[in-house]
Computed example of a mutant assay.
Amino acid sequence: MLAKPCGLSEPDGSVSAPTGLLVRAMGARDTAIGTAMLLAKTPSASRTAAACRIASDLSDAALFGAFLPDVAARKKAAAVAGGWGLLCALAAWAAD
């Protein structure tokens, strides 16, 4: 879901073990932060969890946008990650 659009898959569509590990780690990070957002019991906890998600998405956008091997993939991945960060920021702002 992440490797192919980012240009990190092999020509046959397979993903190397290191890339697969990275993708699974990012998925675990996003799942943990999302769970914290859903289970936050106080406004402060909710804002903290949202800030973690926003920071993660914006750092993904910056890194993918700067370092993916394919220019088209860089633009697409940076836009998608940045879009998720913006959406999360707007949701956090609206919740306040």
Results as ranks from 00 to 15, higher is better:
Arg29Ile: 14
Ala25Tyr: 04
Ala66His: 01
Leu2Glu: 11
Glu10Ile: 00
Ala81Thr: 06
Gly82Asn: 07
Ala17Ser: 09
Leu87Val: 13
Ala45Ile: 01
Lys75Asp: 14
Trp84Cys: 10
Leu90Thr: 07
Ala78Arg: 14
Asp12Gly: 02
Pro5Gly: 00
Ala77Gln: 07
Val80Ile: 15
Thr19Cys: 05
Lys4Thr: 06
Ala51Gln: 11
Ile54Ser: 01
Trp84Asp: 09
Arg47Glu: 13
Pro43Thr: 02
Ala49Val: 10
Ala25Ser: 09
Gly34Cys: 11
Trp93Asn: 09
Leu90Ala: 08
Ala40Asn: 01
Ala32Thr: 13
Asp30Cys: 15
Ala36Leu: 13
Gly7Glu: 06
Ala61Tyr: 03
Val80Ser: 13
Ala17Thr: 11
Met1His: 10
Ser46Asp: 07
Ala62Val: 04
Ala95Thr: 11
Leu87Tyr: 14
Ser46Tyr: 12
Ala73Gln: 13
Leu63Ile: 08
Ala3Thr: 06
Ala3Ile: 05
Ile33Pro: 03
Ala78Gly: 12
Ala91Leu: 07
Lys41Thr: 08
Cys6Pro: 00
Gly65Trp: 01
Ala95Asn: 12
Ser9Asn: 11
Leu90Met: 09
Leu68Glu: 07
Ser56Ala: 13
Ala66Asp: 01
Ala55Asn: 03
Ala91Glu: 08
Leu86Thr: 15
Val80Phe: 12
Ser56Arg: 05
Thr48Lys: 14
Val71Asp: 13
Cys52Ile: 00
Val80Met: 13
Asp96Thr: 12
Ala91Gly: 02
Ile33Asn: 10
Asp60Val: 02
Arg29Asp: 15
Asp12Leu: 04
Asp96Cys: 07
Gly34Leu: 10
Lys75Ser: 15
Ser44Tyr: 05
Gly34Asp: 12
Val71Gly: 03
Ser14Cys: 02
Gly65Thr: 03
Ala66Lys: 04
Leu68Arg: 00
Ala78Ser: 15
Ala73Val: 14
Thr35Met: 13
Gly85Phe: 10
Pro18His: 05
Thr35Val: 13
Ala3Phe: 04
Asp57Val: 00
Ala79Ile: 11
Met37Asn: 08
Arg24Trp: 07
Ala91Asn: 03
Ala94Val: 10
Leu21Thr: 09
Lys4Asp: 04
Cys6Met: 09
Ser16Asn: 08
Asp60Gly: 01
Phe67Ile: 02
Ala62Leu: 09
Ala28Glu: 15
Thr19Arg: 02
Ala55His: 01
Ala94Met: 07
Ala28Lys: 15
Val23Trp: 03
Trp93Glu: 12
